[in-house]
């Protein structure tokens, strides 16, 4: 074992130098990364996209790393008028990826630069497309349809804007988004970017319009409420009317039946009487008259009788045998 301190120091230094050189010529690339090798400012070779352990020339080559994954872009909500002059607030979101890190590096340098360019491009495309489209086309999709039954049901619940409901959808939201995507995506390759997806995240009415829509909804609800109330009153009145009609029917029917029963009874009685009395009309008259006197003569009555009446005959003369026998 050499104990010369100079030699030991030299070995140590050599080891350190080897280590540093080795460290500078080896680099690892994560699964989520890709890189461009830059030699004294100029890119060298194809971009490195395979993750793992890689080598490069030490010191004169440096590694510029870029994300290989899909990156989110979130636009600020924009107030855009639709073709129908309705102002809406549109919030879009997009996904993009660095498809060519070399071009990406040359054109926009880094993600910050890319985001700024994307802001410009996507905002303008979205603005163009939205302002050339009717609100219904933005909100609804192509398969929007409203059946007769739906319409009837909805109108029953008080929707008044039949015109809006029946408005046909020619393109619809999906087609609109697709055309935004197509137009925006065509501008991406020159930046080394691939646009994966762009979506309308939110559509809202701007505040002033929103208030008007709320007012309209409130008015609509109040109208429905009124309709319910008057329906209730109407039904109640109808039931009351029915009740009264039924009442009259029941009472008059009962009276009718009662009259019929009475009439039949009277008729029967009458026929019984006439049968019995018809057999002896003269005797009936006699009997009936006799029966009627006690009823008609009362203590307020004054009777004036002639002495020649049947009853007083014997008052004057007892021997009336002759007369009677005559």
């Amino acid at each position: 074992m050499n104990k010369n301190p100079i030699f030991s120091t030299f070995v140590l230094l050599l080891l350190i130098i080897v280590g540093v050189v080795l460290r500078a010529s080896i680099y690892t690339l994560d699964q989520a990364e890709q890189a461009v090798i830059v030699q004294l400012g100029a890119p060298v070779g194809d971009p490195v996209t395979k993750p793992g352990l890689h080598f490069k020339l030490p010191f004169i080559q440096e590694v510029r790393r870029f994300d290989k994954r899909v990156i989110s872009w979130d636009g600020d909500p924009n107030q855009i008028p639709t073709r129908g002059e309705q102002f809406i607030s549109v919030d879009t979101t997009a996904r993009w990826r660095i498809s060519d890190p070399l071009i990406f590096m040359q054109r926009v340098q880094n993600e910050r630069g890319a985001t700024m360019r994307l802001n410009d491009i996507l905002d303008s495309v979205v603005r163009d497309k939205i302002s050339a489209t009717d609100l219904v086309e933005i909100v609804r999709s192509k398969d929007w349809k409203i059946s007769e039954a739906d319409l009837a049901r909805v109108q029953l619940s008080g929707e008044d804007d039949e015109e809006i409901l029946l408005q046909e959808v020619k393109t619809g939201r999906q087609e609109l988004v697709k055309s935004i995507y197509t137009q925006a995506a065509s501008q991406m390759p020159e930046m080394g970017i691939e646009l994966i997806d762009i979506r309308i995240k939110r559509i809202d009415y701007v505040e002033a319009v929103e208030q008007r829509v709320f007012d309209r909804m409130i008015a609509e609800r109040q109208r429905i409420a009124e309709q319910f109330r008057s329906e209730g009153e109407g039904r109640a009145a109808e039931i009351d009317g029915d009740t009264r009609r039924e009442l009259s029917e029941i009472q008059s029917e009962a009276n009718r039946q009662a009259e019929i029963i009475r009439g039949q009874a009277d008729a029967e009685a009458s026929s019984i009487y006439s049968q019995a009395f018809g057999a002896a009309p003269e005797f009936y008259a006699f009997l009936r008259t006799l029966e009627s006197y006690p009823k008609t003569v009362q203590d307020t009555s004054t009777l004036i009788l002639g002495t020649d009446s049947e009853y007083f005959r014997y008052l004057r003369d007892v021997s009336v045998q002759k007369t009677m026998d005559q």
Binding site: S301, T302, L303, I304, L305, T307
Partner: peptide, 10 residues
């Protein structure tokens, strides 16, 4: 029953 009765001679 009758209140008053008058008997008249012819």
């Amino acid at each position: 029953q009758a209140g008053r009765i008058f008997i008249m001679d012819e």
